[in-house]
Amino acid sequence: MDDRTLIYKIQRGQKELLNEIAEKYYDDIYRFCCYLTGQREDAYDLAQETFLRFIQYVDHYRYRNLKGYLLTIARNLCMDYLRQGKGEVPTDMTEAMPKESGGMEERGGCSDGISELVERQFFLGELQKLPRIQREALLLYYYSGLKIREIAVITTVPVSTVKSRLKQGVEKLKKSMEEDNVKSKISLS
């Protein structure tokens, strides 16, 4: 069932379908909260709270882009979280290697090699160094795939501001990655 149909049926009384939406989008929202706040543990609560809020608002929600709407809620929650001074120190996003026992405890991850993992780790670390408004813009654009116009609405700034945040964010990120790459090569050698 597509999102539009889900929302239509929910608003007509089939509220159990809200569980389907949570199941479908939890992982994406969790990751978004995690990358934005830099906090692995608190991101579970932030993602949960996103859906609880959505359930509260669903009666009056006018369908347009469900994922975008969920991201808006998540983004606002994360911003409030960060404004409270939490998430000063990004937590370690080290991913464990996939367990050979095949336990079903973890979700996501993949069987990429170690070098891909290390690269991802490095990139995440650099991302956390960015100012939060640039990090947010980058995540919404590159990670969540939203359009600049949509990001402008979510972040309540003009389109030009979004563009400049993206540009500055990308530049800073590239520069930071280059510098740290050089440093790590020097330290290794």
Partner: peptide, 8 residues
């Protein structure tokens, strides 16, 4: 790459 990453 981030889409795939991060074990939950």
């Amino acid at each position: 790459a981030l889409q795939k990453g991060l074990l939950i």
